[in-house]
């Protein structure tokens, strides 16, 4: 089963973006949308606090896990527990992938002149935990996540 990613390349090639659009469901709360940056350089998957705050989940009520440095910004990473992510697969159907312990990031401080871009990251841990393969062929504009097994 393939989950297409949004790979965008501008006409001049100066803009390149790779995103995964999904909904996220925290427990019994209603689902909310999230646009992840796909970043295999990140060992951790997290959403910005803005995403969890849509269903009134704030980092002040979550367990602190660790700090992370992103450019000139320190973010505090908190554990939000099990959540479900729903993606649209290549056939247009929903595909649910559970995450055991999603992290929520809140800005700690930002170095002068730096900007925290309020980003949500789909990292390497998500691929590992769910035994997913990431296929990218930028020159052909093809990018998708593939699960193991039949479908």
């Amino acid at each position: 089963m393939q989950i297409p990613l949004d790979f965008y390349k501008s006409a001049k090639g100066s803009e390149l973006r790779l995103r995964a659009l999904a909904t996220i469901t925290f427990g019994d709360r209603p689902p909310v949308g999230v646009a992840f940056i796909v970043d295999t350089g990140s060992p951790v998957t997290f959403v910005d606090e803005f995403i969890s705050s849509k269903v009134r989940i704030y980092t002040k009520s979550l367990e602190f896990d660790h700090d992370a440095l992103m450019g000139g910004t320190k973010v505090a990473i908190h554990r939000a527990g099990r959540v479900s992510l729903d993606f649209r697969d290549s056939k247009g159907s929903l595909r649910r992938i559970d995450v055991k312990d999603l992290m929520v990031a809140k800005t700690g401080w930002t170095r002068k002149g730096a900007i925290y871009s309020s980003v949500s990251i789909l990292g390497l841990d998500f691929l590992m935990e769910n035994k997913l393969a990431l296929h990218i062929n930028p020159s052909k504009g093809v990018a998708y996540i593939e699960t193991e097994g039949q479908d």
Binding site: D6, L21, A22, T23, P31, A35, F87, R88, L94
Partner: peptide, 13 residues
């Protein structure tokens, strides 16, 4: 509901 949310996100993206 989830599908509708994703379609909405796709428009913004």
């Amino acid at each position: 509901m989830e599908l509708q949310l994703i379609k909405n996100l796709e428009k913004s993206n």
